[in-house]
Design a binder for these strands. Structure first.
Lengths: 103, 103
DNA sequence: GTCTTATATCGGTAGTTTACGATGGATATG
DNA sequence: CATATCCATCGTAAACTACCGATATAAGAC
């Protein structure tokens, strides 16, 4: 994953409300925007915008169902992100070309 | 780690330049602000501000050495973050719809 | 004491984010 | 058709972010 994309996803995760939304979506299966809004002290338009950020980052998926839109976690994307995250840390931890810190 | 703190760290990671700075610090041992600036197409003041963001997030540490400040990765913090990250995904994955909630 | 180097911080500008209420376009239901 | 629900989007204001040049401070060097 390119740094730009990775940074975009990090920024999408960089707001407590969006973390809450992810947990709400993980806990309920057929979850629409109104359902999420009822769990949060925010206006519907604000929640809709937060969901859009998560959509743009690819972290959640939308499936229109009748008059409402159901949202769900994109588990494949989450797994890929977890891998990219581990990869970043691996890159930061190795790179022993400086031969570690000798006292 | 509280959501607020976690979100702060995510936001600190949410800029390509700061990812670059982390990699630069991983690759050089006694690395001061000027060293980092020479690796990037940015003004010294800008780099200093990015480093401050990483400092505030606890991702890097500062050690004054003579007339310069040497920066290094905070590996303990990175490990803790990696744990928090895995924990988040565990929480998101392990609640498909197991109905652990009382109605 | 003076000069140099290193760097944090100030001041400013431009762009982005967050939040809200209001609106309009869907999709049912009566 | 009329009505209600759902929800993305618009318009807006406040707050934040990114970047720069300029500056002030602090530590060494001379």
């Amino acid at each position: 994953m390119p740094d730009e994309d990775f940074a975009d996803v990090m920024r999408a995760l960089g707001h407590p409300v969006r973390l809450s939304i992810l947990r709400i979506l993980a806990g309920q299966s057929d979850c629409c925007c109104t359902d999420v809004t009822e769990c949060l002290p925010l206006a519907q338009s604000t929640v809709s915008q937060h969901i859009k950020v998560l959509l743009d980052a690819g972290l959640v998926a939308r499936s229109p169902r009748g008059t409402r839109n159901c949202y769900s976690l994109n588990h494949a994307r989450l797994a890929a992100l977890n891998g990219a995250f581990s990869g970043l840390f691996a890159g930061l931890s190795s790179t022993p070309h400086t031969a570690a810190e000798p006292a």
